[in-house]
């Protein structure tokens, strides 16, 4: 009976009087790929920020590998093994992507040489080994996203949070990205995705949780979710039945 890698319970958050998260509860099992979906504005990125530490919840717990982390600094959480990417790739503009990835590579007591080697290895894995000396500005969107993934992964996190990785990608780029995610997961990293692109969600996920109106309204296998009435109502409105074939 394994404990979940990440357990979020009763998380509430308001911004300026607007309640964005109203008691969110879900778990991420070790080794799985879990997709977090839901209509826009449901609070998904806020949830990520609460998990990674950029935002503190008003109430609730976040438990990672058995430890309560909801009050911890972001960097401590990262050191525990939580990595993340951002909705719009945030590469450090002043550094080459090699240096960007190296910024995340110094965990596990590495020195500069070892960090460089690890960083290059990851850039190779995502197909950017030859562009190591480039700066973010000269890369395509996909390349920037992959650089961010390499940077998040080089420290060997147990859990990777991917924020809308598939947004803005062409179908072939989607395929590439999905393969990268599969490879990362196969190598042992648990993945939590925020995603709108349903093809990716359906193809990749072991499980799906749906966040709507500040709460988790459904959780389960992808096939179950798409036929869940609550989910359909959340996305399509009260008249959702009118849309079915």
């Amino acid at each position: 009976m394994t404990q979940p890698l990440l357990a979020v319970s009763s998380v509430r958050k308001s911004f300026s009087g607007v309640e964005v998260l109203r008691g969110v509860q879900f778990e991420v099992e070790p080794g799985e790929i879990l997709s977090l979906i839901g209509p826009n504005g449901a609070g998904k990125t806020t949830l990520f920020n609460i998990i990674s530490g950029l935002v503190r919840p008003d109430a609730g717990q976040v438990v990672f590998a058995g430890d309560n982390i909801e009050r911890e600094n972001p960097y401590r959480r990262a050191q525990r093994g939580i990595g993340r990417t951002f909705q719009h790739p945030r590469l450090l503009p002043a550094l080459t992507i090699l240096e960007n990835v190296m910024a995340g590579a110094f965990r596990e007591g590495r020195d500069v040489a070892a960090a460089e080697v690890a960083a290059l290895a990851w850039l190779d894995r995502v197909g950017l080994g030859t562009r190591a000396a480039a700066t973010g500005g000269s890369l395509t969107l996909l390349q920037r996203k992959f650089s961010e993934i390499a940077r998040a992964m080089v420290g060997g996190p147990k859990l990777l949070l991917l924020d809308e990785l598939m947004a803005g990608l062409t179908p072939s780029e989607l395929e590439l990205s999905m393969q990268v995610i599969r490879d990362i997961n196969a190598a042992g990293t648990t993945i939590l995705l925020i995603e709108h692109v349903m093809t990716a969600v359906m193809a990749l996920s072991n499980r799906v949780v749906v966040l709507a109106d500040g709460r988790i309204i459904a959780a389960g296998a992808p096939d179950d979710i798409v036929s869940n009435e609550g989910v359909l109502r959340a996305y399509l409105g009260e008249d959702f039945r009118a849309y079915s074939a």
Partner: peptide, 14 residues
Amino acid sequence: VAAGNDPEVASSLG
């Protein structure tokens, strides 16, 4: 340099 450029990203990297 990372911390100076983008502290949020830096902290997400540990």
